[in-house]
Design a binder for these strands. Structure first.
Lengths: 155, 155
DNA sequence: AAAATTAGTTTGACTATCGAAATAAATCGT
DNA sequence: ACGATTTATTTCGATAGTCAAACTAATTTT
């Protein structure tokens, strides 16, 4: 174990604890915000499904399932619900009639944009009142994290 | 709508998308890591319960329930499971025999420390190869986020 | 000491999820 | 071109997590 400067250790623990705080709370806050919104009939998980389907490229049901780590069967029922509620459309592919192409309805696109807005607010508030050099540092840190997580996945 | 420098806008979108990536993946990675570990009999939610109970202060069941946004009834069944599996202990308080004080068993403390280690790794990798001034910037950014989220909760 | 409050548990209904089997369409080997 | 295999999705049955409401027991208020 490396001997560390005490002040730095303390700094680190403070950061760590705030980081834990963010991770533990973001999901819950997002869920709660959704419940109070005009789209209270969907959960955050539904929202992530909608996000994975997203605006433009038409993905197949199993592609979306993989993206959000759901089994195909769970995907089917999730889509059923979102189709019933009018957020998502199922279209059988013309070139391969086994695959189901998923797309957002108008309502789906509205809620997708609203959710993107939420994330944009998060990012804006992360960078609140920061200088370009500081912003660069933050960006690098987030990138570090993304790379680290990507590595963890690979193993 | 404010007119923005295009390069800065692009920078921002890149950061935003990585941020979304982190939020979407951390939970899943944590869950997967847990499944492959020696503690595959608990879920990430169980882990958060254990984390809320934590090492030292003896909290009541309802205090823990509030911390992790669970109803008392859900808390009861969650604790039942963790008691069965040997991670948590229930003790009726002596001063007020309605309240249940929760504590970690030896096994519970081991898994708690392991989980803390996971979070510490995250924080270390966030700050990988960064200078003190950069670290300060990152810290301020995370703090911004914590404050923003705290405000969202209040409304 | 009766009524109200508080902490936690039990019960019943509902939802999400998974894995296995079923279905249906495409492709491969001959 | 035909049957066998593979692929994409769905259906079904089982399990687990959640909530709200009813309930029990302990404590506090009046």
């Amino acid at each position: 174990m490396k001997k560390m400067n005490e002040a730095i250790t303390l700094e680190f623990e403070e950061l760590n604890s705030e980081l834990v705080d963010v991770f533990n709370n973001v999901m819950w806050i997002e869920e709660a915000a959704l419940k109070q919104s005009d789209f209270s009939d969907i959960t955050l998980k539904d929202m992530h499904t909608i996000d994975a389907i997203s605006m433009y490229s038409e993905k197949s049901a199993s592609q979306v399932a993989k993206m959000i780590h759901l089994t195909p069967s769970a995907m089917t029922t999730a889509i059923d619900k979102l189709v019933d509620k009018g957020y998502v459309e199922r279209r059988r592919s013309n070139t391969d009639r086994r695959v189901v192409r998923l797309g957002l309805t108008h309502k789906g696109r509205v809620v997708y944009r609203a959710h993107q807005g939420f994330h944009r607010d998060l990012a804006h508030n992360l960078l609140k009142d920061m200088q370009p050099t500081e912003i660069a540092a933050v960006k690098r840190a987030i990138h570090n994290l993304v790379c680290y997580l990507a590595n963890v996945i690979k193993q």
